[in-house]
Design a protein around this nucleic acid. Structure first.
Length: 848
DNA sequence: GAGCACTGC
């Protein structure tokens, strides 16, 4: 045993060795809960190896990050005193340090998913350890789902072990059919956590600076780590801390993912002053800084969520979960007892989610759905995962894959195109573009485009003058933003991806260098998938047509010349990013659609990575998805109906041309709709017409056997269209009589019944006639002066006696005295009392 | 009118 290994055996997780060995001899599924510092990542795999449970087969340890995968593998190799790449190895993208001898193999989650495609039974694997499973990355969830299925079918000997740092192990143990849970101690120092006593409504940057000042004043030693949601907030916080009146000199350090590596490294270097590091979430999981004794936590993070219904992702600042807050707090206790100050109240804390939203619930599922289909999973929604896919999100992914031609709409099977796409480690949209590129002989260029967008943003927003000048140099075309990226990349490559040169040009050097690797790998994989061909005779148009193949559903049309506003297919709208070069074309596709929240809290949908589209390309490429239709639209400014031939992709109007009207009734329907939507007035829609509608409705209600039509919106539209047929102009439409069209909607017999059963006036027993008022809700009514009907006992009825008229009884001066639907009863019960009052008030009448 | 963090054959 090496001295390193000897030391490692002191790690807390070694207390679990006997229970672990006992458990995995009886079980093929285990959950291990072990917090930071327990040694689970480096030790459990070695216990398993030494115990021989994997039967000489590989033990795979899944890791979420490449950097950690490398260092952990190196650590285990050192403990065992072996060369990395022998008994202990690792496998990550672009870096393979494994050999046939490797028995303990660390790999990133995506690598395992790809391996499952080549080796569905994982015959050479004896155990899979899912490390950091609590992070709930999409790939680890899917990998566990597939491994569970494999174990339940063809590989019952395969050992699955889920290792997690969160204490809430029950759900995952339940998912693994109630398998045993083993718990280990961590090895870290206690952290005292305090919340705010009362909410502080100032920006967290200011509250955090106050808190830093309080720590400085307290005189307690130790570095301070402040969590902020983004780069802008980090700069604000640093400025606020600079203005603290403190005699203590400080080393102020920002830390975020896009920061160049040499700047990131400064947080690890020792400093003669106390370090105050203001960081994004990168410091929560990816970067660990020793020496931190104080954590100041804003309690918020920017979280990306994908809306499958809209196909748009949105980056928003959200309150973090308990799990996330605990992880942040733990950063204060790595080397000594620490303190964590949370900038939210305990009451607020109780309102927060316990855990982070698993990635499967907040991301585009197209890639994994295609992967699952290719592995024979038919029922995607019910595929047994730790968290099932949201049905709407799975459906949206299936539809996208069908539109791309990767899945057969009828059978759901993977098509030839889909099979060629599967092995490419890019989003299916870009994989589809590459398939198209192979038909057009431009694979190399499109592969570079795909590589350029597969990492983080290569162009950094820079306020430096040189970067702005360079950007203009890169933007020498006006038909695709991809060309700008390519020029920037080529420039960075010519300068050897040098940090200085790239910084001057506003290019993220490390990202650009990664693009090179991704590009080479993509080309290699394209070759293996039969996607090949670059014959130098392709044109820019060919490249842009490839973009349409991947992003047709992101087709957009500029609303006007004055703004960058666009309507996007699928009932969406957005604004073209102002740095886009595609500002002359009316039609474009955007490879990126993102919602952002501005500083003044407004939502904005931005269209980025745009490419020009020409109408004739759409006719060529999407003939089946274009519809051409003559439509009649009411023009509110001209106050007339325009007859327009509209060309659409789905709902998006691509082109229109005015023409002579050949469908008078359709044109009239446009006017009718405008009226029914209350946008215009028609004077002939009057009391008489409304009375007639009410009469017809009353008869329809009491005599269903007459089969009178209901005058619903559709019927009204039909009648109005008939009445207005032949005119396009509002000024003519408003003169048109309307009632005849409604009458003629009934048969002659039906009309006679309406006139008989619901007449306009009713004659009482004393031969006096009274005009009826029909209401839409309630009985028809007449208003009668009381003295006009003295002696009339018989109550008037309509509809063959089924409906009693409502009689409003009025005084000689018209003042309403009473209402009744039973005259005989009225005379008997109410009249005597009424008469006494009336006698005194209306002396000119002979009250009987 | 504008920017979290990871990650894959």
């Amino acid at each position: 045993m090496t001295p390193l290994a000897h030391t490692a055996r002191q790690l807390p997780v070694w207390a679990l060795r006997d229970p672990l060995c006992a458990a995995w001899r009886q079980q093929n599924r285990l959950v291990v809960i072990a917090p930071t510092g327990s040694g689970k990542t480096t030790q459990v795999c070695q216990m398993l190896f030494e115990d021989g449970r994997a039967g000489g087969k590989q033990i795979i340890v899944l890791q979420p990050r490449r950097v950690a995968t490398r260092s952990v593998a190196a650590r285990v190799a050192a403990e065992r005193g072996v060369q990395l790449g022998g008994e202990v190895g690792y496998l990550i993208r672009f870096d393979d340090r494994a050999s046939p001898e490797t028995r303990i193999l660390f790999m990133t989650e995506g690598v395992l998913l790809r391996r499952l495609q080549d080796e569905p039974d994982l015959g050479s694997v004896g155990a899979i350890l899912f490390d950091e499973f609590h992070e709930r990355n999409l790939f680890s969830d899917v990998a566990l789902g597939l491994a569970k299925q494999l174990q339940a079918s063809r590989r019952p000997d395969l050992l699955l072990m889920v290792m997690s740092a969160t204490l809430d192990a029950e759900p995952i143990a339940k998912y693994l059919s109630g398998c045993p849970i083993l718990r280990s101690e961590g090895r870290s120092f206690p952290v005292e956590i305090r919340h705010l006593d009362a909410p502080d409504h100032r920006p967290p940057q200011e509250v955090a600076a106050d808190e830093v000042e309080r720590i400085l004043v307290s005189g307690k030693p130790g570095d301070i780590l402040v969590f902020m949601p983004g780069v802008w907030e980090i700069q604000q916080t640093l400025n606020a801390i600079r203005s603290i009146r403190s005699r203590e000199p400080l080393t102020l350090l920002p830390l975020y993912g896009e920061l160049p590596p040499e700047d990131q490294d400064r947080v690890f270097q020792s400093s003669s002053h106390r370090k105050v590091i203001v960081a994004t979430n990168v410091a929560e999981t990816s970067v660990t800084i020793d020496g931190v004794r104080f954590v100041v936590d804003s309690g918020v993070a920017r979280i990306n969520r994908y809306d499958p219904a809209l196909g748009i992702s949105a980056l928003r600042i959200e309150p973090i979960s308990h799990a996330s807050a605990d992880q942040r707090a733990g950063r204060a206790g790595r080397t000594a007892p620490g303190e964590c100050r949370r900038l939210w109240t305990f009451v607020n804390h109780k309102d927060r989610p316990k855990t982070n939203t698993p990635e499967i619930h907040r991301t585009d599922l197209a890639s994994v759905v295609l992967l699952l289909r290719s592995l024979g999973v038919k029922d995607i929604v019910n595929f047994d995962l730790p968290d099932r896919m949201d049905p709407a999100a799975a459906q949206a992914a299936l539809e996208m894959l069908e539109r791309l031609g990767a899945l057969d709409g009828a059978t759901g099977g993977v098509t030839d195109i889909g099979r060629r796409m599967i092995r490419l480690p890019v989003h299916p949209r870009y994989a589809r573009m590459l398939v198209e590129a192979s038909n057009r002989g431009c694979v190399r260029t499109v592969a570079l485009w795909a590589a350029l967008v597969s990492g983080r943003d290569m162009m950094v927003r820079s306020r430096e003058e040189s970067a702005k000048e360079m950007l203009e140099l890169f933007q020498t075309n006006d038909n695709s933003d991809f060309f700008t990226l390519v020029r920037a990349f080529n420039w960075a490559k010519q300068h050897g991806f040098s940090l200085d040169a790239c910084r001057r040009a506003g290019v993220h050097a490390l990202t650009a260098a990664n693009v090179e690797d991704t590009y080479e790998q993509l080309l290699d994989l394209c070759e293996k998938s039969g996607i090949r061909g670059e014959d130098a005779r392709f044109s820019d148009d060919d490249l842009l047509k490839c973009v349409i193949a991947g992003f047709a559903d992101h087709l957009a049309r500029r609303v006007d010349k004055g703004t960058l506003d666009c309507v996007v297919a699928g009932g969406r709208s957005g604004t073209l990013m102002r740095e886009s070069v595609v500002q002359k074309s009316d039609l474009l596709v955007a490879a990126e659609i993102r919602q952002i929240v501005t500083r003044d809290k407004k939502e904005l949908t931005l269209l980025g990575l745009a490419s020009e589209v020409k109408l004739e390309w759409l006719r060529e490429l999407l003939p089946g998805q274009l519809t051409e239709k003559v439509e009649h639209l009411y023009d509110r400014t001209q106050r007339r109906v325009a007859c327009v031939r509209l060309l659409r992709y789905r709902d998006l109007i691509l082109d229109h041309s005015h023409q002579n009207c050949t469908h008078p009734k359709e044109a009239a329907a446009a006017l009718a709709r405008e009226f029914l939507d209350d946008e215009i007035e028609l004077p002939h829609w009057n009391h008489e017409l409304e009375q007639w509608l009410a009469r017809a409705a009353l008869v329809a209600k009491h005599f269903p056997e007459l089969e009178l039509p209901a005058f619903d919106d559709a019927a009204k539209l039909e009648c109005l269209s008939r009445a207005l047929s032949g005119t396009l102009l509002y000024k003519e439409a408003k003169e048109r009589p309307l009632l005849p069209a409604f009458r003629d909607y009934l048969t002659a017999v039906q009309r006679d019944f309406v006139n008989d059963l619901a007449p306009q006036a009713v004659t009482l027993a004393n031969d006096k006639r009274f005009k009826l008022i029909y209401a839409s809700d309630g009985p028809p009514a007449i208003t009668v002066k009381l003295h006009e009907i003295f002696g009339v006992k018989e109550h008037p009825r309509l509809c063959d006696g089924k409906v009693a008229v409502l009689i409003h009884l009025a005084a000689p001066d018209g003042k309403r005295l009473a209402s009744t639907q039973d005259l005989a009863g009225f005379w008997k019960a109410d009249y005597p009392q009424l008469k006494r009052n009336a006698l005194t008030k209306y002396k000119g009448v002979a009250w009987l």
